[in-house]
Design a protein around this nucleic acid. Sequence first.
DNA 1: TAGACTAATTTTAAGTCGCAAACTAAGGTC
DNA 2: GACCTTAGTTTGCGACTTAAAATTAGTCTA
Lengths: 408, 408
Amino acid sequence: MAPKRTTVRDLRRQNRSTLLSMLFFDGPLSRYELAGRSGLSAATVSTVTGEMVDEGLVVEAGSVDSDGGRPRVLLRVNPDFGHVIGVDVGETGIKVELFDLALTQLAALDHALSPSSPSAVASLIASSVRDVVDAAGVPASTVLGVGIGVPGTVEQGATAVVHAPTIGWDGVRLEELVADASESAWPLYVENGAKTQGQAEMWFGAGRGAKHVVIALIGSGVGAAVVTDGGVYRGATSSAGEWGHTTIVYGGRPCRCGALGCLEAYVGAEGILDRYRKARGRALTGVDEQSTVAALIEAAAGSKTAARVLEETAGYLGAGIANLVNLFNPERIVLGGWAGQALGAHQLDRIVAATRAHALRHPYEQISIELGHLGPDAVAVGAATLPVAALLDRAADPRKLAVRADIA
Amino acid sequence: MAPKRTTVRDLRRQNRSTLLSMLFFDGPLSRYELAGRSGLSAATVSTVTGEMVDEGLVVEAGSVDSDGGRPRVLLRVNPDFGHVIGVDVGETGIKVELFDLALTQLAALDHALSPSSPSAVASLIASSVRDVVDAAGVPASTVLGVGIGVPGTVEQGATAVVHAPTIGWDGVRLEELVADASESAWPLYVENGAKTQGQAEMWFGAGRGAKHVVIALIGSGVGAAVVTDGGVYRGATSSAGEWGHTTIVYGGRPCRCGALGCLEAYVGAEGILDRYRKARGRALTGVDEQSTVAALIEAAAGSKTAARVLEETAGYLGAGIANLVNLFNPERIVLGGWAGQALGAHQLDRIVAATRAHALRHPYEQISIELGHLGPDAVAVGAATLPVAALLDRAADPRKLAVRADIA
DNA sequence: TAGACTAATTTTAAGTCGCAAACTAAGGTC
DNA sequence: GACCTTAGTTTGCGACTTAAAATTAGTCTA
């Protein structure tokens, strides 16, 4: 059982973490402001920040006048304290990006990838990570960790286990595989790609500032990242948020998961296009799903059928969102994913109206529905936030004593 | 903003709370066992428990042999340290019960109540609370707090605001009303009745020992209490878990909430009976909903129509449960509420099968589905746990400095 | 240009906390 | 009754936060 005790040491770690997180999220702040915001005494702020400055974690960043007295010295997280890497394992390729601690991208790599064995993917990840470090020209020793977003559920445990039916993975111990394929021993953080994308929206996108958010992601598949009390909600075995496979039409359209009437079968890109094909009698043509959906949206101006299919889609989607509202009672819904943003750009009013029609009045009144600010590219940045989150949480180099139980 | 700092005083409070909670939930324990379980040193356990014994919060409770050495002295929470009161505000009456700290019932009162103004209900609560204290013969000064379960959503804030459409309450500041109607200044804890019932299942019923549980409650209405990481999940404004009004059949049966296709319209008692009436052409007779549903279940042995309606009900319910499984990924589902337990007793296999059919394999494999151990009576005990939870959380008399932000 | 003044940090001294180690208590065994 | 074993207490210490005092780094005034 986890130790439930609290010792004096935990105090310092907790307070370091609080102050470091404030500096990270709320930009440069003086010690004085830190004291005010944190509730800590000026003395403590001084000693704690002093420590972090000595360690190179925090640096001074100019100063601002304070009417009449000693100017305030601004502190901020040292962007060069270390670097983090985010990996987006997609269904058709992997992206590897390297960032500094301010999450500024310093290098990026893309690899197309036909469906391959888990160990082949793991090797590719390991070598690409190596490559991106070389490409960025940063010393290997400054890499604090590697976050990996995968298209499937991830069981967090002693080692992360991935279940990703769309790429044929079932019980893949990706963390072990990548670790075995790498020479370096950087901490690895494997997480569901929807959750990393959600994390990115929370840190840099439409979720900023809110504590209870559901990020609805609609692409080929449909998923959601649920943020409760500021942290990503995982559930008992980290597979929470499988919104796409909730039943919205009992006994309805067959879904690729095998069940009937899943939301994904109606509002997933494939479901939308298939419904159009059935209604119209023939399919739209497009080089890929994404452009076909775009063509459908454009066609809606002239085609009654296209317009009706999209209208219905907005209805289903609104009902699906209303389910999230009723169950999670968030303060904000962020509509993301490439199809979600495309639909939202043309149909947001209708989607909102359908949500209102299906949600209870009280929780509905609490929410705002917004489009995501980031595209699917955000999976990699989101993955890169994982080692940063570990750093903020421990307020210490995550490579040391990497107890990675709850990354939040 | 809440103070984010952690001071050395918080340590003691935290550790007191840990030890007190262990004693409460895991029965009498010796200091030695407490040290082992908590990870605290024997020295700290000794001083902390010493304090709590001095304060009367904890008492010694015999001793047990330890092979060969000094016997272990058992400690337990002093059941007579104080008393707590639970109030169940139902649609047809209120129940008020008084318990000692071991949640042993010492007195109970029932009042029928025709739909009345909030302030009339508040007065009745205030006077009944007074009465139950007199009936139990305990000194008023020993009452640590009063928990109130209400049939609607409760916005927790500076003062609890209740929205309960079924009894015509909209924005009722019940906490203020009751406080104004009482002479005593006992801390009040107002909470949704489904959540208090869920809390009772967690502490004493089918939820014991689990950390991620959804308690599905089916009666006339349908709701759920979601427990994540051991605490009741509330969402941004405490109206999370409105499972009954999630859409399960898009465009389906009208629900009393105004929307179409809500789960409640299919598996709520009224919905079941109405579906039977429509299928059969005539209604079953019964003195009330509860006995009518019982009659329907009995009729299923002979009547094809009744059997089919129940079968369909199991299907809808399974799909609804699957949605909970996919979204919350709990480790356990508890099926409660009078109708839920009645259905579960006769149809559990079918419900489980329908759940499996609609849930994703991976999260499905994590769960066990169980019948609730407690009936709807549990609302009052559940409400009474609220002041106890406050006591355990603060490890101090909740009447002092009652900061009731997060009761968990 | 030297005080005087103001406001941000740092230093100092005090009090709390948990812990390891030494110590005491309470039983059993031979 | 000497000795062993185990439970619980006391003691001394290092780590931590804090209030208060001291210091620092500017601006303003005369």
